[in-house]
Amino acid sequence: MKLSNEEVTRYSRHLTLPEVGMQGQLKLKEAKVLMIGAGGLGSPLGMYLGAAGIGTIGVIDFDVVDQTNLHRQIAHSLGDLGRPKAESLRETLLAANPNVRVEVHDERLTRDNALELFECYDIIADGSDNFETRYLINDAAFFTKKPLVSASIFRFQGQLSVFDPASGGPCYRCLYSQPPPASLVPS
């Protein structure tokens, strides 16, 4: 794999960093990252990953853009109201960097499609907004041996960690063995 001249110029500030360099930029280009959720977390995540030159970005989200999303889900614009979020995020990423490949999965992540989908990617990034999906993602990442970059947010508080049992680290269940009682979960 090689970078085009346009890519060399685009990523020049990466190429001159010893931690990235040409080898690193090629690794980014070869990487396949699956993002779950194209909302509040997924918007900035996707925009940064796309701009940085991650070669293949999968986006799974079943939701459509609503007016109440616009104040924080910055990948979506007024013209995207009613459109699938995954599709809207794809367009935003490609507008900034047409060199990346964005694979849209306009569906809900379920126990029936999770393993097959995870197998197609190297890294899983969780930007989901509910516990059912979070446990599903954790378990599916464990079974497919994919590192999971997990972020969650509630009001003004956020959490971030990387779960990678394959490299000896803990999983999400090591941290939270049980979900909170349904009656305490904010909607």
């Binding site: 931690e19 990487a31 990953l49 990034a125 003004f156 956020g158 960690s161 990387v162």
Partner: peptide, 28 residues
């Protein structure tokens, strides 16, 4: 920050957040 963690894993550089949980409070 989530994107940075993904990029570090791809590059194999730095110290990823494996075994660590970051708690962020915007109000404080």
């Amino acid at each position: 920050m989530q994107a940075t963690e993904v990029i570090k894993l791809v590059l194999g550089e730095g110290l990823p957040m494996i075994g660590r949980l970051l708690l962020y409070d915007a109000m404080k």
